[in-house]
């Protein structure tokens, strides 16, 4: 069967779920792709500062049409704004923030996450694929809390939450929590623990879409 199901939360709802979990006062790095959406969903009344690895602390929302600055971009090379009180810095300082443990949370996309928290998100390792690692290996090595936001399964229905990553690793035992369209899952010593499921998703359905055994 070739039918592609995408149930549960929309991408924006997933971003909102992750944004709601960010503690007041956090410094947060947002990776390329779906993590970029999170900047649009900071709840009112809390202060969060977004870091982008290309040299900006205090990244703001996407600019209005016509207000873009070609030299004000995020890690995904998309136009962004700088909030009042933002600062710019060079790459060695930016990765001093990352590797030196100064950021509180890193939110990344993923190709695969295993039940021990290994992350693969930079290469499928296939012949002809162009490997591109960017800052992901530094982020998982240096940031205290690493969250992943990703669709629960691949477009062709394969597992992304797996027993063991088959793609080259970004880091070993680094992921703390995963937000998918179906559920929010904590990576614990005991295994993958389901914290919340999207409306209409049953535990049995979630287990069917997940390779490792889930804990309720």
């Amino acid at each position: 069967m070739n039918t592609i199901e995408r149930l549960g939360w929309s991408r924006n709802e997933m971003a909102q779920k992750a944004a709601m979990d960010i503690p007041d006062g956090s410094y947060v790095n947002l990776g390329i792709g779906m993590p970029e959406l999170i900047a649009d969903h900071v709840p009112a009344g809390i202060e969060v500062i977004y870091h982008t690895e290309n040299g900006l602390l205090g990244m703001g929302p996407v600019p209005e049409k016509g207000q873009e600055d070609i030299e004000l971009i995020n890690a995904g090379k998309k136009y962004v704004t700088a909030i009042e009180g933002a600062c710019f810095f060079h790459h060695a300082d930016s990765f001093t923030m990352i590797r030196g443990g100064h950021l509180d949370i890193s939110i990344l996309g993923a190709l695969q996450v295993c039940e021990k928290g290994d992350l693969a998100n930079w290469s499928t390792g296939k012949p002809g694929a162009i490997p591109a690692v960017g800052g992901a290996m530094d982020l998982v090595a240096g940031v205290k809390n690493v969250w992943v936001i990703t669709d629960h399964n691949t477009k062709d229905g394969k597992f992304k939450l797996v027993n063991n990553c088959s793609f080259p690793l970004t880091g070993k035992g680094v992921v703390d929590r995963v937000y998918t369209n179906l559920a929010i899952i904590e990576i614990t010593e005991a295994g993958l623990k389901v914290r919340e499921m999207a409306p209409g998703i049953t535990f049995e359905y979630l287990q069917e879409k997940t390779e490792p055994k889930l804990l309720q």
Partner: peptide
């Protein structure tokens, strides 16, 4: 890795021949 690239350049300019980093450990 981007942070390793930045630090390798910084080190080169600062007269530091090599350094140890946690980035890329356990990866290809």
């Amino acid at each position: 890795p981007q942070g390793t690239l930045a630090e390798r350049i910084r080190a080169g300019g600062a007269g530091i021949p090599a350094f140890y980093t946690p980035s890329s450990v356990n990866t290809p």
